[in-house]
Design a protein around this nucleic acid. Structure first.
Length: 112
DNA sequence: CGGTTGACTTTCA
DNA sequence: ATGAAAGCCAACC
């Protein structure tokens, strides 16, 4: 085990993403307290592949709803297929109804 | 300790 | 609207 301080934060948030919903790196970064760490979220996701329990990285996309990280999966269609299985409409590596399926941790997790 | 990298975001042209 | 460049923060070598 390693001290994935920032990574663990990202992993937890990503794991909290409900099925049929997606979020952006910036949203997670901002939820962590620093919007500038959006890249760090993506960097953490790179380690997510070896993280356990595995995080639904396929539910994390960029601000455009584009599946930028699909190249890191075993197969390019892997990410799209999983999102489709969740009920998310994906077209041309892009999440359709992105605004509808968008899940903002800073809002959903901040009920009070 | 310092430079490079990275599944990003935002802004200028 | 499209394209390129800068900015940002944390981890890795």
């Amino acid at each position: 085990m390693a001290e994935e301080n920032f990574f663990d934060r990202v992993y937890e948030v990503v794991r909290l993403i409900p099925a049929g919903r997606v979020t952006s790196y910036g949203a997670i970064a901002q939820f962590l307290g620093s919007k500038g760490s959006a890249r760090i979220v993506g960097y953490a996701m790179g380690a997510a592949g070896k993280a356990f329990p595995p995080v639904p990285a396929h539910r994390v996309v960029n601000s455009q709803g584009l599946l930028t990280g699909k190249f890191h999966f075993d197969s390019f269609s892997q990410m799209e297929d999983m999102l489709a299985s969740e009920g998310i409409m994906v077209e041309d590596s892009k999440v359709q109804n992105f605004k509808k399926v968008f899940w903002d941790p800073s809002i959903e997790l901040t009920v009070d």
